[in-house]
Design a protein around this nucleic acid. Structure first.
Lengths: 359, 359
DNA sequence: TTAAAATTCGGGTACGTACCCAATTTTTAC
DNA sequence: GTAAAAATTGGGTACGTACCCGAATTTTAA
């Protein structure tokens, strides 16, 4: 009854070593693809590993290699400019960070100015210099993002897109909304609210509205139109692009259109600028026009409450951030399979249920 | 230059031992509150721990104590009876289980028959005998659940409620919908659809409809009525309780009411039995009555698609399961704070967005 | 053939914590 | 005061993996 501890050496590197009749270190070399193993031994050990369907013990691994994992996050600055939208993802990111901190993962967030491509490039460069093991980024500027992620690929650093996608890039995963589908849903909501004969005004507000496949706003507009087409909705759709984001300009343009087209009964704003539009209608006592827009941000809640905005289409900003980090964690630390695309559920937020969405 | 490895012994039990000038084993005893430490030493070590704000290394801990954690899950059987609703939580539970398997957690699921209190008690007994470290349960039968969780408390086994709550019990957490709020939201949706003068029919279908504070269906009904009250909605509300869940009976009762009240324009069903109601309307070619109901289950998708059901109110069954397991994991293994209540976002599911909800 | 170099392999220690067991000190009993 | 019992403390090993370093083996060079 000397050593009764030897209960279950059924798996693990030790068992591989025993079965292959080699030393632990050799098994280790094989597992990590390190050199210094003869072809013959390599085959032998590989075979045993195969046979045993060996799954490394994450705990032991993490303890032994006290390697710290460093994740980098690259997202827009959190400011009024974007209606504090990125507070959502940021808070999800923080949540996930805390959860996996004990596994030796540290997350560093870098920001960029949505109006300044250079700031994006600058932060991206910082990340490249920082020797990170995984990257979560919002590919706001397409070309710059492609350049950045190409470099990542060359360095074999996995990256995850969040909030918007660049399908041709070999990202580990995309986590965010299906823009087209959200527009399509918008079409349905419009259909619920609009009265026969009423016109619908689609409003795109952004500094730059390029007609490319990746344009977030136009993809949503496409979704709306597509719903109208497919369901043969008779209401006329008008549209206006506003590339000056100052409140004044927006107000001016909106009022112009409304006066010229008194039959407009509903405005569909393709992003969180819906707040500015709502403000405009409220200020000018226009209450016969309903509003549907995007993103549940602090400033939009009041307009939901007082009924100026009827619906907000929202895509779980917090969960996007959380999932983004966890995806890297699952891939790099836990060796779990991760989905290539994770489309967020599309939420319809009203004044009755907004309280149930974490902002 | 002998041993350059001693780089950062800045924290950990070793450092505590060094600072308090005691052995590792003593520190260990203090940390785990085991006996065999003199009062004097206890104070000394405690003080050092306090000073250092010691946070145990989860990895080291998990490796050393090869203790396996066992979680038990107690949920209704997955069958047609409940429209396969519990497939959602079950799949979330599975997802979480896989994620934390590598941390030495094993999850065992027990089922019970929704029509048989004894089966609930039987499974609960099994769990108690099974020496589990944490429990996730759907407290379907109130009294039996209270008895069960009281025993858990006596044994200091933490438990989490899922899908419905028993507020007075000292659960670690409740994860699920805010029923009243979901009904309130239902009120709003009704208001969108109903025409002036139209009557609304609320339908509760369940084997047992006791008028208690915990009754899920009545809480929802309350929410609807409350919305109507507060917003002074003029449409009349009718209601009917059906305690026989056979399709035949439901069809008969529904048709009866509809014939007696031809002004009914909308039916609000307080649970997933909405499918049966939809089936009934379809079968009898009644298409002037709109339907709102609960839960996105496989059989309800068709009715969403063909427009017989307009809205489903849904509360992320999958995420409920996922969160439930992760809550136990966070509490027991990671020592993270967990929220007492986690109300799921209330989703409005339509034919346009149902595809984005994992079932 | 032999020494040197290159290759291959194995022993051993470390990571942070848990826990067994033996050594030491203190307390109790006579 | 002494022996025995009890309480307290410390040493040491284990968990599964990573990796250093030296030993054994093979290959190359002379």
């Amino acid at each position: 009854m000397a050593k009764a501890k030897r209960s279950k050496p059924r798996n693990g590197v030790k068992e591989i070593a025993r079965r292959a009749n080699v030393a632990l270190a050799t098994v280790d070399r094989v597992i990590h693809g390190r050199p210094g193993v003869s072809k013959k031994t390599l085959e032998k050990v590989k075979k045993v590993i195969e046979e045993m369907n060996y799954q490394p013990n994450i705990i032991g691994r993490r303890l032994a290699s006290m390697k710290e994992y460093h994740f980098a996050v690259l997202i827009p600055e959190i400011n009024e400019e974007s209606g504090f939208f990125w507070e959502g993802p940021a808070s999800g990111i923080k949540l996930a960070s805390e959860e996996i901190k004990s596994m030796g993962v540290e997350v560093t967030t870098f920001f960029f100015d949505q109006n300044d491509k250079n700031s994006f490039v600058a932060s991206a460069d910082k990340i490249l210099k920082g020797k990170f093991d995984g990257i979560l980024l919002a590919p706001f500027f397409i070309e710059e993002s492609i350049a950045f992620t190409n470099t990542c690929e060359a360095k074999a650093i996995p990256y995850v897109f969040i909030n918007s996608d660049i399908p041709d890039q070999k990202s580990l995963s995309y986590i965010g909304p299906d823009l087209y589908a959200s527009g399509y849903l918008g079409g349905q909501l419009i259909n619920y609210l609009i009265k026969p004969g009423g016109q619908v005004l689609i409003v795109n507000i952004s500094l730059e509205i390029k007609n490319t496949r990746q344009n977030r706003l136009l993809r949503k507009e496409e979704g709306v139109r597509s719903y109208f087409m497919r369901n043969k909705i008779k209401n006329e759709i008008l549209k206006i692009d506003i590339t000056n984001v100052s409140e004044k300009t927006i107000e001016k343009k909106i009022l112009e259109v409304l006066i010229k087209n008194p039959r407009i009964g509903l405005i569909f704003v393709t992003n969180s600028r819906v707040v500015t539009v709502a403000k405009c209608l409220e200020k000018n006592y226009i209450n016969h026009v309903q509003i549907i827009g995007y993103d549940l941000i602090p400033s939009s809640i009041d307009y939901l409450k007082n009924g100026i905005i009827d619906f907000l289409i929202c895509q779980k900003p917090q969960e996007q951030g959380y999932r983004g980090i966890m995806t890297l964690y699952h891939h790099l630390i836990l060796n779990l399979k991760v989905p290539e695309v994770y489309h967020m559920p599309i939420d319809i937020v009203t004044k009755e249920n907004y309280a149930y969405y974490k902002i």
